[in-house]
Design a protein around this nucleic acid. Structure first.
Lengths: 130, 130
DNA sequence: CCTTGCCTTGACGCTGACGACAAGGTTTAG
DNA sequence: CTAAACCTTGTCGTCAGCGTCAAGGCAAGG
């Protein structure tokens, strides 16, 4: 399988696949003319990479998962290194959820305050929207 | 007040203040020697900018709040344009919270699965941790 | 006069995951 | 012969909010 085919099958671009290779995530063989040749298994690998990036992982975070897949596991997440990353990411996400929740609260408060302010400076006849 | 003093009082850098100016958020006067001269009110403005950026706003989002403060309001959030931004941001945050929650769920599931997998391939004597 | 400590503009660096070219080789079909 | 459709490496651009020099002007104290 050449790079174009893999790109299409994985729903990505050739540029992306070369980028992953430059960062050590895929190691295609080369045919006589210098073309990259991928075997079927790489499709799974690329799909795993894409899925993890979509979820907010960085390329470095993805590496253990790729290695895990290459080691013959059906899922990239079952190896110890992957689990470490999963734990760390879960903690990060929880952290972010907390902060984002606080932000949401703040926005809500500001909005409420602004509405109240509008009612105060420009009151309606009783309490009804037009 | 010169730029260095404002920077320190606002807890930021001179570079940052010049950056805000380049993007039309502050308009200091100039003294005879070309130095930027800020009046006291600008401190509030800069603090508002910083607060909003910290919460995840972009510079463009911040503009209405600055204008609102300059219009004499005690809070930058009470003007109609600011309220629009607040509403939009609240929606964005809610959206992001949803997606982040889904991601969290996925991570949790993967972790659970990985633990189960470990128990399966490398079982303990009964069910206890060392 | 010299140093110190402000200030000025200008311009490159950074982070991440690519997109978008440029300039060229290969293979196949017509 | 040539056009089409692959492939190659290399390099620059993107987004945001600054950090970090660089090179120089201005003011004041000793």
């Amino acid at each position: 399988m050449l790079i174009g085919e893999l790109a299409e099958r994985a729903g990505t671009s050739t540029r992306t696949l070369r980028y992953y290779e430059a960062h050590g995530l895929v190691h295609p063989q080369r045919s006589a003319n210098g073309y990259r040749v991928y075997d079927e298994a790489e499709l799974r690998v690329v799909q795993e990479i894409r899925a993890l990036l979509d979820v907010g992982f960085g390329l470095d975070d993805v590496r253990p998962f790729v290695a895990c897949l290459r080691a013959g596991n059906a899922s990239g997440g079952v190896c110890p290194d992957s689990v470490l990353v999963l734990r760390r990411k879960l903690a990060e996400v929880d952290d972010y959820l907390d902060r984002l929740g606080a932000v949401r609260q703040q926005l809500h408060t500001q909005l409420t305050h602004a509405i109240a302010h509008r009612e105060e400076t420009c009151p309606r006849k009783r309490a009804s929207a037009p």
